[in-house]
């Protein structure tokens, strides 16, 4: 029941965001609200056991969300800024030393590995190619400085940040 309510509410809010500005009740017309309610109840009923079974209590901890939003701005966006300029210069000068290196991700759960791998891919200059059973990441690096790098050489402080968010 809890999973059903949470899923339906999330779907309804998303529907309202998508249809904002359609009418006179607040920002929405009465037809959009009714259609959104019906659809989100149907979706919540169908998908409750998939969403509810996997939801852990960590997802409701507000401190983790705070850290996540801080993480989006300071390490992630800053790294993206630095390395985007770096790759833009490499596009012009063609000074590249590419290679695929193996790093330890330092994570122990799936969400952490997913978040770290996506962060590594979003910062240009590094691209996650694969992950193995021991959570080692294979990273294509456009400017290989060491052949056996540590985690910090590839992704800076991001691994520690992600570990603090998800563990």
């Amino acid at each position: 029941m809890k999973a059903f309510v949470i899923t339906s509410a999330a779907c309804f809010i998303f529907y309202l965001v998508l249809t904002a500005g359609s009418g006179a009740i607040g920002l929405w017309s009465i037809y959009e609200i009714i259609a959104g309610l019906l659809l989100s109840i149907i979706v919540g009923f169908v998908s409750q056991k998939y969403v509810g079974g996997r939801m852990s209590k960590k997802a409701l901890d507000p401190m983790r969300w705070m850290r996540f939003f801080v993480y989006l701005i300071y390490p992630l966006f800053w790294e993206m800024l630095k390395s985007n300029v770096d790759v833009a210069i490499r596009v012009i000068t063609m000074d590249i030393h590419p290679g695929i290196v193996k790093i330890d991700s330092k994570q122990n759960n799936d969400i952490g590995v997913t978040l770290l791998a996506n962060s590594i891919t979003l910062t240009p200059g590094t691209l996650t190619v694969d992950v193995d059973e021991k959570n080692n990441l294979y990273v294509h690096w456009i400017d290989v400085k060491k052949k056996q790098p540590k985690t910090e050489d590839v992704c800076g402080k991001m691994a520690d940040w992600v570990r603090r968010i998800t563990q």
Binding site: M80, N84, V87, V91, M94, I96, G125, L127, V129, H140
Partner: peptide
């Protein structure tokens, strides 16, 4: 256009 292979092209194309 300028990078040599598929991986380096992905760097330029998807993330910039």
């Amino acid at each position: 256009v300028r990078f040599p292979d598929v991986y380096t092209r992905l760097h330029a194309e998807t993330k910039c």
